[in-house]
Each structure stands twice: as C-alpha cells, then as structure tokens.
Amino acid sequence: MSRQLSNETLIEVKHIKKYFPIKKGLLSRVVGQVKAVDDISLEIKKGETFGLVGESGCGKSTLGRVILRLQSATEGQVVYNGEDIHSLGSGKLRDLRQDLQIIFQDPFGSLNPRFRVSDVIGEPLKVHTNMSGKDIDARVVELMELVGLDASRRNRYPHEFSGGQRQRIGIARAIALNPKFIVADEAVSALDVSVQSQVLNLLAKLQRELGLTFLFIAHGLNVVRHISDRVGVMYLGKLAEVGPTEELYNKPLHPYSAALLSSIPKPNPALKRERIILKGDVPSPANPPSGCRFHPRCPLAQDRCKAEEPLLREVLPGRQVACHFPLLEEGDLQRMASGRLG
C-alpha cells in the first residue's frame, strides 16, 4: 500500500456500551436490556478507513451513531481532540459537529423531499457558518462538481435524481463543512453494482484529496475489503477481531470471521470453495449466551468458551482477536471447514 498512514489517533473509543431498555407493562418497568454495543474499545487513526462488518443486529450501526453522539452512550468515552465527546456541553458539541459527519444508507429516506438539492447541501453551511446566500450558492456548486453532479440541477428536488446521484448529494452534504471524520453507514449497500463502484471510487477520491478519515460500516464484505485499511468484525455487540484488511481476509483468526468470510459467494464457478456453514441463527442481544457469545454456533467451542468470556487481545502484531483458541496454526481453517477440529 503506497498511501502512508499516520500513527496519530484521531478517535479513540474507550469501553463504549449502549444498552436499550426493554419496557413492559402499564408502568413501563424495565425488565431487561438489549446490549447493542457491549464494551467496545478501538482506535481510528488519522487518514485511515476503518471498516466495520457484521451481520444484521450485531450493533455496528449503533456503534457508529454512538461514536458521533447521535445517540448517547450508556457508559464509556469517545475521545476526539483530547476531549470526551459524550461529556461535552451542547454549545461545544455543536461546534464539534462540523468535524464529524455521517452518510446514511438509504438515499431515498435521508434527503428531505421538500428541500431543493441546493438547500439540502447548503443547510449545514447555513447552520454553522456566517456565509452569505451568494457564497453558500457558490460553495454548493463547488461541492456538486466535486462529487460529480451537474451543478445546474441544484434547484431541483431529490426525487428527480437516481439512487446513485442521491447518494452523491448525501456525500456532498457530509463534506460541506470540511469535516475530519465521516461515518459512512452502509453508504453503498442500497446501490446496484455498476453504480456502487462509482460511489466507492468517489469516496476514495475524496479521502485522497481532503484527507478524510472514514468509519465505513457495511454488511457487504467485499465492499469493505476494497475500501478499508483496517477492519473490525462485530458479533452480538462485541468486537470479535480487528486487523489490517488484507491480513484479516487472507488469514482470519476468529472462527466467526473465518465462517463469515467463507460464506461470501465468489464470482468464479471453478472455485468450489470450502464453505463453513454455521448452525442456527444469531442469538438475541437481549439474552446473549454465557462466556464467548459465539460458542453455541462455533464448530470449535470447548468447555472454557462456555464459562469464560474471551477478551480482545493482540496475538500477532497489529492483530487483535477475542477468542480463547484463535486460528493461528497453518491449516486450522481447512480443518474447521471439514469439521475435524476441536
């Protein structure tokens, strides 16, 4: 990889938890908690793209929102510029919002249908800066050209644009204030392959030109591989594994990452791959299994996994995994696929 990554940490997430109460009955008594994000710590370096993958319901979107304080954390800190975002006052938080932006999944639901495109993109400028209407318009034109939209269409409404174009509008809005950090929450998942590749290239271009840092949340494992420098794999509110993209994709250490990666369908019929098919479904985060949360579905689970929760630890340089028995040996993967291990 030719792009030099800095070692400077931009965002540090420390033991973040987000629990949603389950209420029942007339008095709305709290009878339990959905542990959507349960004690996650990670660092995002300046200028990198950190990919977050996992199946639906694993808490990856909640984590993205909690990092931006779009939702408050139950516990824990998110440190940006030496300050904890979750303990800032409202005035300071508002200033900080200029640095931290988000691109949403649904290009149909995330744009106000009654706003012209110029208003959608110009709104953050109106809120956060003292720019005159004329200056804002000039900036909107500049932004639309930057994301590859025809700026002469800026006085039209969102429904007049296609899905890919709408996602570009969402991106233009996110970069309007020159942010430092952008959470892209399933930003290309709703798009067709031919349009998806255009938007991915745009995000890469913007990162090069504007020096952005991305947290790229997606369930599409191939997309994450393409765009990310490092990847975190989530399962039931916890990080199962964190590592540099290529190392993780070539040699997953956690049995869950291995199973997840092996189930990507590859566009090559000659590859009759060794698929690891997991039993059962993802358990409910309201009542996660004891010990390692993956143990009921893990083909390698042993007694220790049922009793003791594995902590995320560094087993190889730069590679963290939360598993008592990581797949370190050569050939572990093959044995796991054939079910002969453990």
């Binding site: 990889m1 030719s2 792009r3 296609s162 890919g164 174009q165 067709d192 392959v193 031919s194 349009v195 998806q196 590749s197 255009q198 991915l200 290239n201 890469a204 271009k205 494992l221 191939n222 997309v223 994450v224 591989r225 393409h226 765009i227 990310s228 993209t245 290529e246 590859k266 566009p267």
Partner: peptide, 25 residues
C-alpha cells in the same frame, strides 16, 4: 464484463480505482 469488473474486493486492495460502468441504468 463491466458487471464482473466492478465487483469490489475480490482481489487485494490496490491504489487503483475500481472499474466503473459510466452513467446510470
């Protein structure tokens, strides 16, 4: 050909851009 080439992530990450089919459906 374009459809196959624009699938991301089947090869190791490169600095090159992903192949795109220009325009929209």
């Amino acid at each position: 050909v374009g459809l196959l080439k624009s699938i991301p992530g089947f090869e190791a990450k490169t600095e090159e851009d992903l192949y795109t089919i220009k325009g929209n459906i």
